[in-house]
Amino acid sequence: MSTTTLAKALNSGLRAAMEEDPRVLVMGEDVGKLGGVFRVTDGLAKDFGEQRVLDTPLSESGIIGTAVGLAIRGFRPVCEIQFDGFVFPGYDQIVSQLAKVRYRSQGKVPMPVVVRIPFGGGIGAVEHHSESPEALFAHVAGLKVVACSNPDDAHWMIRQAIAADDPVIFFEPKRRYWEKGAVSDSAPAPLYSSRVVRAGSDVTVACYGPLVKTCLEAAVAAAEEGRSLEVIDLRTLSPLDLGPVFESVRRTGRLVVVSEAPPETSVTSEVAARVQEECFHSLEAPVLRVTGFDAPYPPSRLEEDFLPDLDRVLDGVDRALEY
């Protein structure tokens, strides 16, 4: 057990994966000498060499497209997309090749590729640096999509994602890169699993990525007012692991789903649809959502209005309890 930042926990996870398997490569823009713009790959090029830590040309389709080719050759590439809003030139390769080569070849050609994407807002950045595009990947058959929220998960989930034989889109909460936490000596949970991170009895709150911390803080505030929130970190967005959510909602009868992403056709809408299918007779209130808006991410002076914060989560909880 050690305490470290989320970025460093990812770094040590990448390092461990590279030590375990010589076929693991790290590739992306500025991931070599610079160590990545968030320093997640710091020191890896020095220790593993430039044939395993590739400073690539500035081209996202190239990053994904060549990773697909390297995977066909038997490598296990870990791609870094520098910011969420820059993934789209690579989206064609992700959707048309990365997600489909296994299916097309009926399992003859596996695609063990991880695409790391720092996501979400809250860092005062310019346009295209604060987006939450996870639903665009969760919608694509053939991909798995996960989001870590703390250093322990960051370290272990990246190792599990690299070891997995499916392509994994790995979302990292960029505004939490510098948050510290303990890292366990062994994996605390399977990759494709959600976890109850705070037990409670009045309202269930499901969230992921950067807003897990926000929701946990909201639960503390709610407790001061005598309300008991159960907080669930979804961790895996495709496939969703909703067993713990169903179990929780059957006890609380109330669910608030929280995300920075726009609500339309999103992870939160999928959770709401599935919970009403599975827990219809347990629900005391409609499933409510606290999310960003169906608008492009705003100029950063407005991002505190766009992003769900502690008060908006509590407002959602209040509305759920009004029924």
Binding site: L25, Q51, T66, V68, L70, I72, F75, V101, R104
Partner: peptide
Amino acid sequence: FHLYTIVIGNQCLNATGYAMGQRFE
């Protein structure tokens, strides 16, 4: 011989990545 690629041009990057792997090996 890779499977047919129908999205025009995708395979040029896949082939390049494969060839990079040949060099790395």
